[in-house]
Amino acid sequence: MALAIEIDRLAFAWQGDQLTLDIPQWQVEAGETVLLRGPSGSGKSTLLSLLAGINVAQLGRVKLLEQSLSDLSGRKRDRFRADHIGYIFQQFNLLPYLSALDNVLLATQFSPKRRQRVAESGQSAERLAMQYLQRLGLSASQQQQAASNLSVGQQQRVAAARALLGAPELLIADEPTSALDSDRRDDFIKLLLELSEQNNTTVLFVTHDASLGQYFNRHVELSDINQAVGGSSHA
């Protein structure tokens, strides 16, 4: 089975010698949907920044889709991220001055690979984006509205459509549901996972909310894999 995420003897400290992350071994298989839970300050954001290739671990290695991030130059990491990983954030997801549809299309604007995959599906990026938005519950007129005019829930769905357009191998979501009420949150997650499954996209969903675990293949507590913060074996 191919691995989507592979972490090997990872150690990371922001400054000084206080380790934020110390993960000896952790893997996510391709096609899995994983919920990674941890309280605030447990190193979630740091782990995400390492997975996104924004920061580079001082020790150990992070492999995404069998590719070691530390072997890539900054420019290549940007390209790799654009091509293979879709992101959804807690907030600040959309460019307020673009329409919902144009925001989704940004995904293909900076990634030739994603454009190519859209082309292979036999549809134009615009048609596909409209379909995604439709499935996520945005009417045609809402799709043309500036993102700043959409509700938070709608904005998150637009962000999801963008993360999935062009079928990236990996979807990383960072607390995307924290601004939604529980009904909308559950609907959102179900739709997200449904679309991901169609694209064979591996999902890593990071949250502090343990009640979402039921929707995912696997539920992982960050404290179980990270020995640096609150780790049991930090002797």
Partner: peptide
């Protein structure tokens, strides 16, 4: 900075 972060997330490099 929000706009920049979003562009970075969708794959725009610092050069872009």
């Amino acid at each position: 900075s929000r706009e920049m972060a979003v562009l970075r997330a969708v794959g725009a490099g610092p050069g872009t």
